[in-house]
Amino acid sequence: MKIEEALEESKKVLTQKRYDHVERVTETAINLSEQYHGDHYRVGLAAALHDYAKDMDFSILKQWIVDHVDLPKDLLNYHHEVWHGPVGAKMMERFFMIHDDEVLNAIRYHTTGHKHMSLTEKIVFLADFIEPGRDFPAVHEARKIAEKDLDRACHFALENSIHFLISKKQSIYPDTFFAYNEFTDQLTY
């Protein structure tokens, strides 16, 4: 599947606003891929499909989690905002015969992050956080950091996501903590 085809597939199932976000994430991810020597195709494909399941009814996402033995059932204990990544990755396998773990994991973990993120995963995760349509206080700093250091930018994004979820009194999926802790242990400031 070409990146342009993936964008067209996303456009079929997303609202215009969400699709515009996906286009911006794809462009941002490709730019980051060029900067950090990522795999242009894998990054672009994952970015173009990362929110494929985002606008689907929660009952559909829940049913996918229940029905698929390889989707973690503990997802159901967390806010539905984290469901679309893992379910979307499963849908990519089923609907589009994508079996590239690099692409699937970038889709699966684009919201939560996780321990041992690949370059493709980091780029898609960060592109989703810093795309030009985002406007919140931390995003400006994240963009500056992203110009110089991908790992520090991911760490910053994870830290801010954790703070945001705590401020909203929402539970935080454990993979986010694992990713944050790993970056914290690896980076020296």
Rank of each mutant, 00 (worst) to 15 (best):
H99G: 04
T112I: 02
K90W: 01
R24A: 14
R24M: 14
Y180F: 10
D67L: 13
P137Q: 04
H155I: 05
M97T: 03
D185H: 10
E8N: 12
Y109R: 03
T112N: 01
L76S: 02
A106Y: 09
V66P: 00
K54V: 12
H68R: 12
F96Q: 05
M56T: 04
I166P: 00
T15W: 06
S33M: 11
D39H: 09
D100N: 14
V25C: 07
R134W: 09
E34L: 12
Y41I: 12
G44N: 11
I65D: 00
A127H: 06
H84A: 05
L7Y: 05
E147N: 11
G85R: 02
H114F: 03
V43N: 04
Q63C: 10
D39S: 11
Y189P: 14
A157K: 00
K122R: 14
H110A: 11
A89N: 03
T15Q: 13
N105K: 12
F183A: 00
Q186V: 04
L126D: 05
P72Y: 01
R134H: 12
H21K: 07
F125L: 15
D57M: 00
Y109I: 03
E23V: 14
S161I: 10
Y78S: 00
D101F: 05
F164N: 00
P137I: 06
C154T: 11
H40L: 06
N105H: 05
Q170C: 14
T26N: 11
R94T: 07
L150K: 06
P72H: 02
I145W: 08
F58C: 08
